[in-house]
């Protein structure tokens, strides 16, 4: 019994063997041919110059050094983080090391930014410059991934799908799978509504641009996975998504530049703050949240689409 269990765990026998006794095995011919082609590709790769050098480097203990360095850096990181946690004041006690900046944020945050959620007020008002940089980092990363991974007629070998791309699983999709489609139909409206809620309510409750944008980007990814990239293309083609991301960033830059030059340091800010707690409150925070959310959603979907298909959207 124990031996059989061990064999099963190691994957040598199948408990279903007896149950499915009458079923015949499939010897799948197309898979065999593809396998042969793959083996030829591997052999071709092994004959290339430089391959042996790589293998030698691996045998010379590269992985040993790699593992040692990884373990040491992980232990260092854990130590530093635990030390920092130990330095934190206990919950509810007065923080004696807090400087005026923290006091200022906590005491005057609501009246100065108009946001009930102090974190939103901080990242999109006091420290909006930092968030501006983060959005630009996301956009730059998307552009870099696009440069590296985009497949179009300029870098294909011919106009037709050539030998290598036919083998690639880039052209395979599961659009007709009933399970995924059904769950997508049920879940997608909830996901999009929840993402929009997080996005619009960022100044009043935890959330905001980054988390709302991530939820909406996930919704886009699920749409692409369940219904195909063409479905996403029907409401968000490449051109629209690029313009959306670009215009969001432009709006953020100009709006925040205006605020930096006119009202950042106590000068009057001309945008009304509204009633704290209402959806239309917090002055510039709500539009900035929406801009950041659109950037994040576009970036997430762009990453998925570029890695999966080598392009944003269908095509």
């Amino acid at each position: 019994m124990r031996k059989r269990f061990k064999k099963w765990v190691m994957g040598r026998t199948d408990v279903m063997d007896r149950i499915l006794d009458d079923a015949s095995e499939i010897h799948d011919q197309p898979r065999e041919t593809i396998k042969k082609q793959r083996m030829e590709l591997v052999r071709e790769m092994e004959e290339r110059p430089g391959y042996e050098r790589t293998v030698e480097a691996e045998q010379k203990g590269f992985y040993l050094i790699y593992h040692i360095v990884a373990v040491i850096s992980c232990i260092l990181l854990i130590g530093v983080l635990l030390y920092t946690v130990a330095m934190l004041p206990r919950y509810g006690e007065e923080n004696t090391r807090a400087d005026e900046v923290v006091e200022r944020y906590v005491e005057h945050g609501l009246e100065e930014t108009g946001a009930v959620n102090i974190v939103s007020g901080m990242i999109l008002d006091y420290r909006a410059f930092d968030t501006l940089g983060e959005s630009h980092v996301l956009f730059t990363a998307l552009i870099c991934v696009m440069i590296l991974l985009r497949v179009d007629h300029k870098n294909m070998r011919s106009e037709y799908e050539d030998y290598y791309t036919v083998l690639s699983d880039r052209y395979y999709s599961l659009e007709r799978d009933t399970i995924i489609r059904t769950m997508g139909k049920i879940l997608l409206p909830c996901i999009f509504v929840y993402g929009i809620y997080i996005l619009l309510n960022g100044q009043n409750s935890p959330g905001g641009g980054f988390s709302g944008g991530a939820v909406m980007g996930t919704g886009l990814i699920i749409t692409a996975a369940a219904f195909g990239f063409d479905r996403v293309d029907s409401f968000l083609p490449l051109r629209v998504s690029m313009w959306m991301t670009f215009l969001s960033l432009m709006f953020y830059s100009f709006a925040k530049g205006y605020v930096f030059f006119t009202g950042a340091n106590g000068l009057e800010n001309h945008i009304p703050k509204g009633v704290p707690g209402a959806i239309l409150s917090g002055g510039l925070i709500l539009p900035l949240d929406i801009a950041v959310g659109l950037v994040v959603a576009g970036t997430m979907f762009g990453f998925y689409s570029l890695i999966r298909r080598g392009n944003i959207g269908g095509a």
């Binding site: 079923a23 499939i26 793959r38 996975a225």
Partner: peptide
Amino acid sequence: HFMGQIEYFTNPDLSSYLKLRRR
């Protein structure tokens, strides 16, 4: 299920890992 399907349809060496049976 999604990951399993992708593996089933895209791995060309599948029959060296699994016994494929016809129902």
